[in-house]
């Protein structure tokens, strides 16, 4: 079991990876990636019960599906540090002939990725299928997902949310990255969604809110509570309140870095705020 300091150090390194990856190709989505760094580091290194190696079926291990595929930089960095593929391969992000496509895919055979995502709103349905397959297989492990809050504007999510409770898919923990931002602005200016918590409750889900979504201890505590609610007949939703662009002062609290890479000087500034902990790739 890793301690908080180790997870924090890994998060800082993941943050450096994200910044360097998007800077190198002058494209990608740093904001949401930075905001979810603590969560994905904690998920892959502490929360999920994973097997060594990778196979597509993922029998008898916890599975994770990234629905908001544009935060691929954080996903790739966390997968690499978790041992699915060499960390040096992060150097190929978004380059021709790379397994690290702009949005995650199974198509290039990258270990750790079980579904393509990027076109939003599809991940929860896929997770439901994987969760129901686990039940058919007598497999007691869990399925985790991550979704953007803006992504909930896609209608397919609500088909999935309705189905999950109706069919008692209780081996599923869906986390919503509640950063309040999307590409065109804040979610409240683009399309106000009201209370997301009330909506999930109305759809008969268990809902856990993690107020400090960029705090490792708070994430571990909240996810332990979420896990304790599984297996009781209801799907579980975690509302993870994060700050988009977390850890880089000029990227925080704005949608401006949703899909924009830093300049050379901005990268230098951002990296200075996150000194290397495990060594750069």
């Amino acid at each position: 079991m890793a301690n908080t300091k180790e997870l924090q150090d890994l998060t800082t390194q993941v943050r450096r990876d994200i910044l360097r990856m998007v800077h190198k190709v002058n494209s990608g989505h740093p904001g949401g990636s930075l905001g979810c760094a603590e969560f994905l580091v904690a998920l892959y290194n502490e929360i999920m019960d994973r097997k060594d190696g990778f196979d597509m079926d993922g029998l008898n291990e916890d599975l994770f599906f990234l629905s908001n595929g544009h935060i691929s930089p954080v996903f790739y960095s966390v997968l690499a540090h978790a041992g699915y593929f060499p960390v040096e391969e992060l150097n190929t992000f978004r380059l021709i002939d790379s397994r690290l496509q702009g949005h995650p895919t199974t198509h290039e055979g990258l270990p750790g990725v079980r579904i393509a995502s990027g076109s939003l709103g599809q991940g929860m349905s896929v997770a439901l299928g994987a969760a129901q397959a686990k039940k058919l297989n007598g497999d007691k492990s869990l399925v985790y997902t991550l979704h953007g809050d803006g992504e909930l504007q896609e209608g397919q999510n609500w088909e999935a949310i309705m189905y999950a409770s109706a069919k008692k898919v209780d081996n599923l923990i869906c986390t919503i990255d509640l950063n309040g931002q999307q590409i065109d602005g804040s979610t409240d200016t683009v399309l106000p969604m009201g209370s997301i918590e009330a909506k999930f409750v109305a759809f008969d889900w268990e809902v856990i809110t993690i107020e400090k979504g960029n705090d490792i201890d708070a994430i571990l505590k909240g996810m332990a509570e979420a896990k304790a609610l599984t297996g009781k007949g209801k799907p579980v939703c975690v509302l993870l309140k994060t700050v988009m662009g977390n850890g880089v002062d000029f990227m925080m609290y704005t949608h401006a870095w949703h899909g924009k890479a830093p300049s050379d000087e901005q990268l230098e500034n951002a990296l200075a705020q996150n000194p290397a902990t495990l060594g750069d790739y």
Binding site: G129, E159, Y163
Partner: peptide
């Protein structure tokens, strides 16, 4: 081994994709 999805074809295609992960 049957899943009644309701009138929600997008969800059905996603669930079908997910069921393959697990060998179905």
């Amino acid at each position: 081994r049957f899943f009644q999805i309701g009138i929600a074809e997008a969800n059905m295609m996603g669930i079908a994709a997910g069921l393959t992960i697990g060998g179905k």
